[in-house]
């Protein structure tokens, strides 16, 4: 079981990096453990270092925007790479191995990223950013147009409803 503090930091950092709010990040995390992918494939130590860096910046009173910018542009290359890898995991469900770790070999340009589990894709964020959902998923809510609801024949709900 993950330390709740670790989980909280992971959620908060994920919000900052992805731009999605607590409700949508929490909902996705309830359905698929994105943190576990990070811990297994980047290593516990690297994950803790990433989250510790976030906490350090937060304790220093940095704003979310300053934290995100610092982690992605002003940190050591490994931290920045891991943060970007995490962003793509959230948005696409795809894992671009940032460096060699255990049995996992680092992703090389032109290579193939890994989708470690169907859930990683099914609960990824890119479809929501499009005011839709990941292609091929069905959450029980039909978008078939009816008299009561225009569904796919009309404009979808505002972006804020997908990202809050």
């Amino acid at each position: 079981m993950t330390d709740p503090k670790v989980n909280d930091r992971f959620v908060q950092l994920s919000q900052i990096l992805t731009g999605f709010g607590p409700k949508s990040i929490g909902r996705a995390l309830d359905r698929f453990n994105f943190l576990q992918v990070l811990q297994e494939r980047a290593g516990l130590e690297a994950t803790e270092a990433l989250l510790a860096r976030y906490q350090q910046l937060k304790d220093a009173g940095k704003s979310d925007r300053e934290i995100g910018y610092t982690m992605l542009h002003l940190s050591d290359p490994r931290t920045a790479l891991l943060a970007r890898t995490l962003m793509k995991l959230w948005y696409l469900g795809q894992w671009f191995q940032p460096y060699d770790y255990g049995p996992y070999k680092s992703y090389k340009p032109g290579g193939v990223p890994v989708i470690v589990d169907p859930g990683a894709y099914a609960h990824s964020l890119a479809g929501w950013a499009a005011q839709a959902k990941p292609v091929g998923t069905f959450d029980g809510n039909s978008a078939y147009p009816t008299e009561a609801n225009p569904g796919w024949a009309g404009v979808p709900p505002p972006l804020s409803e997908f990202t809050e």
């Binding site: 990096l17 992805t18 731009g19 979310d64 948005y91 890119a126 950013a129 499009a130 005011q131």
Partner: peptide, 17 residues
């Protein structure tokens, strides 16, 4: 551009939609 946060969401939304 290398985006994150709200900038990333908004830009993705602008393009994907």
């Amino acid at each position: 551009r290398k985006l994150f946060g709200q900038d990333l969401v908004q830009e993705l939304n602008d393009k994907l939609t």
